[in-house]
Amino acid sequence: MAYSDKVVDHYNNPRNVGTLDKSAAEVGTGLVGAPECGDVMRLQIRVNPETNVIEEAKFKTFGCGSAIASSSLATEWIKGRTVDDALSIKNTDIVKELSLPPVKIHCSVLAEDAIRAAIGDWKKKNNVAEIAPPAK
C-alpha cells in the first residue's frame, strides 16, 4: 500500500513535534492509543486564557506513517483556532486531506480523539464547563 504524497510529506517533515510543560495551567495534554497497531499519540496545546485561542500545539506519536501524519496535520489545523472551533475538526476531514485508505482510518480517529483529550484536559484544569461540539 502506497502512502499519499501528503502523508509522506508529514512523515518526513512532521510539524510541531515536541513537548509542552504538562503542569502549566494553560497547557492541555491528550494521550491516546489504538490497540490494534500499538500506536500511541500525545498531543498538547497551549491556550491563551484571554481569548481561548490555541497558540501552540505539539505532538509526539509512536506509530505508522499515517498516525504521524494525522497528528502532525491535527496540530497544524488547531493552531490559531479557539478551543471550541478546534473541536469541530472531524477525523473524516483528516482522512480526506491525507487520502487515507480504509485500513488507516483509525489513525485519523486517534488524532481526533487526541485533540478532544487535550482540550478536555485543558478544560478540566481551568474549570471550563464541557461544551458539546456544534452539531454538523
Binding site: 477525523n91 473524516t92 482522512v95 480504509p102 482510518i105 483509525h106 480517529v109
Partner: peptide, 8 residues
C-alpha cells in the same frame, strides 16, 4: 463516511 462512522 458511513464506514468511517462504523469503524469509529
Amino acid at each position: 463516511v458511513q464506514n468511517q462512522e462504523k469503524i469509529q
